[in-house]
Design a protein around this nucleic acid. Sequence first.
DNA 1: GTTTGATCATTT
DNA 2: AAATGATCAAAC
Length: 222
Amino acid sequence: MQAPESIDQLSARAQAIAGLSLAELADQFDQPVPADFSRHKGWGGMLIELALGATAGSKPEPDFPELGVELKTLPISSTGQPLETTFVCVAPMLDASRQQWHTSSFRKKVAHVLWVPVLADKGMSPAQRQIGSPFLWQLSGEQEQVLKRDWQELTDLLALGQISQINAHFGEYLQLRPKAANGSVRTQAFGEHGELIQTQPKGFYLRTSFTSWILRQQFAPK
DNA sequence: GTTTGATCATTT
DNA sequence: AAATGATCAAAC
């Protein structure tokens, strides 16, 4: 699938896959369907990227660089509650002190997102998961303020060499959690006296309380 | 080895 | 049951 040329085209493509099961979508693109996610955790997201024409394997840029839009799948229950937190980006370690909210990679990712809810109730196989109603969302006002507050707190701690104190309990709507292939992976960071230390890589994740807020905003009866 | 795609599995 | 901490695969 070619990259979409406009927001409207992207939106139309997203609406066109609403209601399909992941098995049906996979069939359209001749993709194999894993029996479970245990060894294919990113499969659903990759499949939807393929179907919408996202640039696979892109790095710091949004999934649709021309449009400035990031694609995120969101597993939800039948009652519309998010079932998992949402990974946004890796945390800067050595560069933490130079980060500014307005130009941060975190803000770039969450500024404009195409959310694709996927019904993923317990017991549903990857094949059975069903695509919901995708919607374009832009970070604004109150939501930006709360995320900025959490992001600034966590980024400041990283800059001050406090990473060893940080766990997933920090942050009201945003949290910092391990993001690595396994528990032995290490990357460089600053220690509490400004020295270089080896530490586990971390990523920023949106709590379900935040994505739940977005869903309510989008689907609440007017 | 790191980033992007996330979910798994143990703890609370 | 929910949240945290750990983990898996592909692309680069």
